[in-house]
Structures are given as C-alpha cells and as structure tokens.
Design a protein around this nucleic acid. Structure first.
Length: 273
DNA sequence: CTTTCGTCCTGACTGC
DNA sequence: TGCAGTCAGGACGAAA
C-alpha cells in the first residue's frame, strides 16, 4: 500500500536507472489501468532522453528532454520492478519501459488502481490531478498555521481531514492513524476543534512519521535493485496501525479500532483525546 | 460549499 | 481441501 514514503522510495530507486538514459521501448500490455492509458504512449516517449524524476504527493513525474512528462500513480498495489530485461514477464505487468543501458522497468499493478498520463512538463502543475493538491507534508510551507487555516471550518473528523489531499498530501490511512497517536489526538475529533498547540503537535507528528518511514526505505535502497528486483517495500513498525487489542506502547491499555470515513482506524482511547 | 458514499480491482484471509 | 464471503485501500465523481 504505497503511501508517500513508499512513493518517495520508489522514485529514488528509479532515479539512477532512468535519469540520463534514453527510452528505447515502451510497451503497454493493456489499454487501461484505473483509466485508459494515454494514446500513443510509445510514439510520444520512445527515443527521448529522461532528464529528471520528481515526486508530487503520491505521484511520480518522469520528465523527458523534449518537454513531455509521464505521470505515474501506483494506486494501491502498483510496483515498479527493475531488472535486466532477461527474465520472463509476470502476471499484472502492464507497462514495460526499457532504456539504452539495457535496464527494464515493469509497472506491475494487480488491482489496477494505478494510473499513467502524459502531459507537457511546463504546465504539469495545471494538470487536473495535480492542481488541487495541498501542501507537501515535508515542506516548510506545511505548518500549524497552514494546517489550521485549512481545517478550522471543517466539521469532518480530524483523521479524514489530514487524509484530504487538499489539506496536506501524501498522508494515507496508515500514517494518519500513526500521526494522530503520536500527537495524542483522537481520530474522530471534529477538525474544527483542533487547537493551535495540538496542530503544532500534529504537524510535527506527520513530518516525523513520514521522515522515519522514508529513512527506513532509504536504508533498503543501498542496493536499490534487490534480489527480487523489487523496490521500496519495507517493513514498518507501527505503533497503532493493525494492532487492535494489543497494548498501547505508551500506557499498555489495549488499542481500539473503529471505522472513520469507511477507513480502518486504530487508536488508544487513553492517550488520544 | 461541505460531506458522505459508491466505485474501480484482485489477492489474502476467514469461516464453514 | 474447497469455496463463498469479506476486507483492504487512493482518489475520483456523483449524490445528498
């Protein structure tokens, strides 16, 4: 389940394989993922040098020299598998990229919640999927002040609010539970009731939780092509997520579970108010 | 405008 | 062991 740290890790792993290389082939093995794949992907991108990779929210942008960019979202089950192009393709390998260095990148996505699109690099920020995105959580612009401004009129649960990409991007279901636990805020609290001091703690917690996860991903990136060629899916140590009934690491009281906005939520009723 | 809910998809897991 | 049913989840888009 790729959240921001996973996407960041995948992007960092792809960078040395792709940047500075020329795309020698691109094969779309089906016409759609979540939505139809762009028309003539191959014609638009093959033969072009890749100049840079970038992450925005949970999207990866692959920039090409001729001014087009490939936008990729991993969805729920999307993976980027790097290999030398000599092994057999696997089930759910939907899009295959090859470079002039002989490396192959396979976009494998069992559930097909992922997506790809091609856009002009210059106007990428105006793309309908990117234009409404809120602050990057690890940027300086994401502060208690900016968070409060975004949520002070919102009556929805604070957990739902921080998962809203217009408020702050990249906080998915898992890290939302983790960050709220770290900040001592009950996930069901109305967002509008969050006070300045709590917002400060929450912003701090979101940054810390995400940074820690990226560092863990980073540690597995030393040899970015792992034995199985898979990038960036590392073991997490969660404080609350998936730990219903287990003792709170803080107070030992059994952790609780509830559904908020149709999403599984874990918290400590004693430590989070 | 805000908020909720349905939807897409398939593998993993549960219960009988 | 097999099968049916349930759950998981990002984010759009429709509905309330």
């Amino acid at each position: 389940m790729p959240e921001l740290p996973e996407v960041e890790t995948v992007m960092r792993g792809l960078t040395p394989v792709l940047v500075g290389r020329t795309l020698t082939s691109l094969t779309a093995r089906r016409a759609d993922l979540r939505w139809p794949l762009p028309k003539n992907m191959e014609k638009q991108l093959v033969g072009q040098p890749i100049t840079a990779l970038e992450r925005r929210a949970k999207y990866i942008l692959i920039h090409f020299q001729h001014g087009l960019s490939l936008l990729v979202h991993l969805g729920m089950s999307g993976r980027m598998v790097i290999d030398d192009g000599k092994t057999a393709l696997e089930k759910h390998d939907h899009v295959i990229l090859k470079t002039d260095a002989g490396m192959r990148v396979r976009f494998n996505d069992a559930r097909r919640f992922g997506m790809m699109d091609i856009m002009e690099t210059e106007t990428a920020r105006q793309h309908k999927l990117l234009v409404h995105l809120g602050h990057e959580p690890l940027s300086r612009s994401f502060t208690a002040k900016s968070l409060l401004a975004a949520i002070q009129t919102r009556k929805t649960a604070i957990k739902t609010a921080i998962m809203d990409q217009e408020v702050v991007v990249g906080v998915g279901n898992i890290y939302a539970s983790e960050a709220l636990f770290m900040a001592g805020i009950h996930p069901k609290r109305s967002a509008s009731t969050v006070k300045q001091a709590e917002a400060e703690k929450l912003v701090e917690a979101i940054k810390k939780v995400l940074k820690r996860a990226i560092e863990k991903g980073g540690s597995t990136l030393r040899d970015y092509v792992q034995a199985d060629g898979e990038l960036g899916y590392f073991q997490h140590e969660f404080a609350v997520y998936g730990r219903k009934g287990e003792p709170c690491k803080n107070c030992k009281k059994p952790l609780e579970h509830m559904t908020i906005g149709a999403r599984s939520t874990f918290f400590c009723v004693n430590c989070q108010k």
